[in-house]
Write a protein that binds this DNA or RNA. Sequence first.
DNA 1: GTGCTTGCAAATGCTTTGCAGGGTG
DNA 2: CACCCTGCAAAGCATTTGCAAGCAC
Lengths: 150, 150
Amino acid sequence: MSFPKDPSFRNDLRQRGYRLTPQRERILRYFAEIPVGTHLSAEELYQRLLEEEKISLATAYRTLKLLASMGLLRELDFAEGHKHYELNTNQESPHQHIICTSCGLTIEFLGGKLFETGQQIARKYEFEIIDVQFKIFGLCPACQPPPKKR
Amino acid sequence: MSFPKDPSFRNDLRQRGYRLTPQRERILRYFAEIPVGTHLSAEELYQRLLEEEKISLATAYRTLKLLASMGLLRELDFAEGHKHYELNTNQESPHQHIICTSCGLTIEFLGGKLFETGQQIARKYEFEIIDVQFKIFGLCPACQPPPKKR
DNA sequence: GTGCTTGCAAATGCTTTGCAGGGTG
DNA sequence: CACCCTGCAAAGCATTTGCAAGCAC
């Protein structure tokens, strides 16, 4: 995709009655410029954008949510208390995650046929699919055996 | 499993240096008594237990987290802003969920070979597996097409 | 010009934590 | 009888929201 002039992005916004603002363009472009699979929290995004020109944290939250609802971003929840977002590349098999519940380490791996499996199930229940997430929670090598207390 | 005298529960606690308290027993037993797959938030659990004898909300949160870390409960996150918990039946193929991001409807379905797939991946990365979660986010029939605004 | 958006700050909502008293092992 | 737990209330965080001003269309 080419940002910020990606036509589909503009059309997507218009078709839903939303406006193309510098902030929205900026945020989507930022995700397109960083390595694929980089996932950021609203706060992290806000901090990184501060270096150039400021976008309020509230707008960051609003925009992330909007872009995710449009399917342009993937909203990820690693059960850490805050959400993460990454560019949704719309590929047939998005990568998935294995997360260490002790130290928070997350590793991504290729989804293989998982997305296809999800599509079949979604079809069965007549859902219009937005995202398929396969998550493995566990303890990474460094965190085994688990500490007695946390 | 038989509660509240399930020996493995008691042993699990002891082995980790935790104590067997009426509150912990009560909460785990409650999950064992309700239909399989019923998932409750801390607040919901708290409300339901109020009818009998009160357990503080703080204890509910602490206990849910503890039991989940022990693998007795599954911690579920449907990206709604609060976590849900359900009894972990330790079966080879736990059920999974399809969630409507618009109205919150969640339907569970059998995991099939998804858990096995997760195990293979966990082995590859040398993770000690705690849970495998496959989630499909989408719009249920009633919520299609999406409203222009929320 | 209309009305969606932004920024700011206050508010909200879920979850965690400090502390003193209580109960388990 | 040491130390883990609980209950309570206060604190902590991520996220949302009210409102006035700004900007896209």
